[in-house]
Design a protein around this nucleic acid. Structure first.
Lengths: 214, 214
DNA sequence: CAAGAATTTAAACACTTGTTTAAAACAGTT
DNA sequence: AACTGTTTTAAACAAGTGTTTAAATTCTTG
């Protein structure tokens, strides 16, 4: 009689068209944003019928929520996995920067997608993600506190420390069209600049957060 | 016979409705982006008829180009006016940061507007703005080069220097919804954090760009 | 194979989009 | 007052929007 959609029944092979639509949506949303694309464009990108988008995900908005949430999750995890290892804090920070540049080189559109789409009411689940709590659970904040008490680390509150690290890692990717446009850089020149920049900001942040005594 | 629109005739009182529409468009575009709003919404915000938008600006796209270009210009000028004064380079950098935070506190949505909308083909006039050339004309790059030769300034290429300064000034505003969401900050708490952060990044950048000899 | 459920399709729904049209209202000049 | 050109309006245009419907197809299982 009634059709409750696929979520209720969960076919064994985990419906590859569902996955195809999700991946298409991820690409299109990332490139153009929620308002910049249509359901039909997503369906076309996936090689599917329009109605399937709503058949599997009920609405464009719910599909977007799904994509945005999982993107934010990837984004968070990329920052977290370093902190769980056991090495000196100084090394963690150094490797964090390294990994972050590597991750963002593979997903250069991610920061601008997050920063621009986070304003939508569709995307208000940041509060429910417990991002800071989960990072705190790695123990890295305690390490920082301890390092500060021992005088190895500069006494800066943790929020500013995070902003500094995120800013100097993410901004070059956030502003890449502006930077390329301003300095008339080709893609290859920009990539070269990124490598150089990573070294500078590593030097700068390490020198600031972990000053040598004298 | 034909109606060429108001640009051809330029009434003396400089048509205040034209200005009203432009200001409404600026507000709406800034808040929602080009794709996130309609011509009718802009007209409504301006208290005008829809047709007037196209009567004065020919199309939504041309109106957007106008707004985006002038925003980019404001953005550039806010960075430039410091460099033209005559004071030691160190002071210029210090005051640049101060002014940039002050400017962005008054226009907090500007960075995310620029970074997200710059991808549009509507907005491809960055190349024609000669941003770097105009900054170079202030002589600040030459000053930096001289300071580097004299050993007062660290030897970093000018592009990375600019990215570092832009990143640490603009990122907190770019990521403000994310930061507020992550750390569950109220608007007042965030403003407090901004003040603190400005001090930290000033200290960090000054220390890095102008290291004390030993 | 046949029955029933799950998937896919084309078509339609009501509504919004950017833009244009043609008439109306306004202004200024003689 | 009548004619001028300019500004404003309501209405219409075709095209595109998210979403739904109901029929067609495919798949699964008895």
């Amino acid at each position: 009689m009634f059709n409750f959609g696929p979520e209720m029944t969960k076919t064994p092979k985990d419906s590859s068209t569902e996955e195809k639509i999700k991946e298409a949506a991820r690409r299109v949303f990332m490139a153009k944003g929620f308002d910049g694309c249509s359901s039909r464009e997503i369906a076309r990108e996936a090689g599917m019928n329009v109605a399937l988008v709503n058949y599997y995900f009920r609405s464009k908005s719910q599909l977007f929520q799904l994509i945005f949430r999982s993107t934010l999750e990837d984004f968070l995890l990329s920052m977290m996995d370093i902190f769980e290892s056991d090495m000196p804090l100084e090394n963690k920070v150094r490797i964090f920067i390294e990994r972050e540049y590597e991750f963002l080189s593979r997903h250069p559109e991610m920061p601008v997608f997050i920063m621009s789409e986070i304003r939508r009411e569709d995307a208000c689940e940041i509060n429910n993600m417990n991002m800071v709590e989960r990072i705190a659970a790695t123990g890295v904040f305690d390490e920082a506190l301890k390092a500060q008490e021992e005088g190895r680390m500069r006494k800066i509150d943790i929020i500013s420390t995070m902003i500094i690290m995120m800013a100097n890692c993410q901004f070059p990717f956030l502003a890449s069209p502006l930077i390329k446009g301003m300095h008339k850089l080709t893609d290859e020149q920009f990539e070269q600049q990124l490598l150089l920049h990573k070294q500078y900001v590593t030097e700068m942040m390490m020198g600031y957060l972990f000053p040598v005594k004298q």
